[in-house]
Amino acid sequence: MTDREARVAHEILRIARDELRLGDATPAPDAALAGALDSLQLLSLVVAVEDRFRIVLEDDDAAGTRTLADLARLVAARSDAALIPAQAPEPAR
């Protein structure tokens, strides 16, 4: 994971915990999203990520997006650099 991707992953985790209050359901970076979240939670996360990073995630994107780390890579590749947090996160737990 590049530094840019790690910063995106960190921000997605923050959204999941603080904005969507997913609590224990908040997925670990390498866990399958579909296993950790139910369909409403997953959709809520996708919508929140689209809003935060001003991108549109297409149905075709879902095929290559199994984990939160996959999602972070996709978002990092699409999103405007100005929308990605500059602060380097603490090392992933």
Partner: peptide, 12 residues
């Protein structure tokens, strides 16, 4: 005003 991808909500 709140959501970037309104079409996704319309699809719902």
């Amino acid at each position: 005003a709140r959501h970037f991808n309104v079409e996704r909500l319309a699809d719902l």
